[in-house]
Design a protein around this nucleic acid. Sequence first.
DNA 1: TAAAACTTGACTAATTCAGTTTAGAATGAA
DNA 2: TTCATTCTAAACTGAATTAGTCAAGTTTTA
Lengths: 147, 147
Amino acid sequence: MKFSKKSEYALRALIELTGQYGQPPLQRHEIAKRQQIPIEFLEQILLTLKNAGLLGSRRGVTGGYSLIKPPQDITLGQVIRILDGPLAPIGCVSKTAYQKCSDCPYSEKKNCPIQNAMLGVRNAIADILDNYKLSDFASGHCKRAHA
Amino acid sequence: MKFSKKSEYALRALIELTGQYGQPPLQRHEIAKRQQIPIEFLEQILLTLKNAGLLGSRRGVTGGYSLIKPPQDITLGQVIRILDGPLAPIGCVSKTAYQKCSDCPYSEKKNCPIQNAMLGVRNAIADILDNYKLSDFASGHCKRAHA
DNA sequence: TAAAACTTGACTAATTCAGTTTAGAATGAA
DNA sequence: TTCATTCTAAACTGAATTAGTCAAGTTTTA
Ligand code: FES
Ligand code: FES
């Protein structure tokens, strides 16, 4: 149940880019240095985020990466789904990538006890991550797990 | 962020064993057949659960596996931790297997925005799974993610 | 005693993870 | 124009994990 290093690095890089929002682009080597991320690996991650439509980039000597949308319009849920896939702990409760459990004997009858439990888990995770925005990073804001 | 097949099979096997609690042990081939799990793989899982103190077993012709504790004393959290390790999405928010983030620049100052967010996630997951008992499976009980 | 059942450990193929390498294309300063 | 700087794209790698499989036991009891 761990997030990959990619997701972690992505979030760390996005913290830097959030701080730079509205200013000139930030270069990969600057992000890598500040966050201690292997630069070539970071590159891969930034490209993925760019292709997913979160970042823009400019080449050449004054180039770099920058957020393409305001930080309050990007959620942690989006970022993590891009790099790690669906949030759900099991395919049959994913909203963004549902997959029927081929071998679960309760699958057909829609009364699977495991599905029941895991749906709660997936919703709890998504409720937090889909409401936590990049802008909340800057403010040190902390969403509560349960009121 | 997916659970492994091991955890899934373990829970499915435990549903069967919960139904059998207080009665003679259930044999692995019976569990495998009812839940459509490859028998040698199931064996591995049952052994792990046994070594973790959840199951007992008897050998020989009338043998099999059985729960060693009442179903209301075993939580999904316990089971999943045995097979998949800690529930936390990142080492620095795990209560059962804490690990410092060696390369996170905020790690020292205890003001890591990622840690903040992920602690919420880990607590939400643990709140559900550590309160969901095997006995809740039988009753079709569904813990709500958020009141 | 022999069949049925659990026990142990090693083995494997396929995939994923974390990262590296290589080659190329755009930008802008000299 | 030329050239260093920067991003782009893809293939490549070694280690670890996943999901099983296999073989050779030991224990129990009919
Ligand atoms: S239907 Fe998905 S685990 Fe049962
Ligand atoms: S301290 Fe763990 S991610 Fe920052």
